[in-house]
Amino acid sequence: MNIFRLSGDMTHLMSVIVLLLKIHTIKSCAGISLKTQELYALVFATRYLDIFTDFVSVYNTIMKLIFLATSFSIVWYMRHHKIVRRSYDKEQDTFRHLFLILPCLILALVVNEKFTFKEVMWTFSLYVEAVAILPQLVLLQRTKNIDNLTGQYVFLLGAYRALYILNWIYRYLTEKHFVHWITWISGLVQTLLYADFFYYYINSWKNNVRLQLPA
């Protein structure tokens, strides 16, 4: 465990906390894409199939449980909570997740390290995670005024990805740890998707104005 990996996990955790904070204290999920949240729940459900079979560390198991529990509870809140669900921008959140899930599934069946159920599901989760933010970015672009918590949520998610890339470089240099090219490319694609958002986020922060993305 190096500082980049730990910071990456912590920013990831913080992004979830920011989102839960919005849901629990403001009782609002305005500006949050349910499609993206459902994709994340799918990512964790398919990636952590090994949670009870392959033990890595207590830290690892606890984090997996946290990501599983929080992603499913966020989806539940947005879909079923009496008050929270009313703030969901259903008309704006029109991205079809099947258009993302199906190509990822086909790609995972064709491009994988080992053709076993667990391995294909794991690869599938990497591909889905790479594009899971897209519905959220589309929704952000349609939202006139992006509130601070939503902006911070997406920023933290992007920071988590950027830190993971630094972590891979660091691990390669120090441990000669080899990151498989599937992980590397899907991680890189995922991080690049945030580049545009980062540009506008940092600008709005520097100029102290409300975050707004160009249409």
């Binding site: 990996r5 690892n60 993971y164 972590n167 441990e175 740890h177 080899f178 498989h180």
Partner: peptide, 10 residues
């Protein structure tokens, strides 16, 4: 290395 197959990241 042998570590290649250990999925120790989240």
């Amino acid at each position: 290395s042998k570590e290649e197959d250990v999925k120790d990241e989240l």
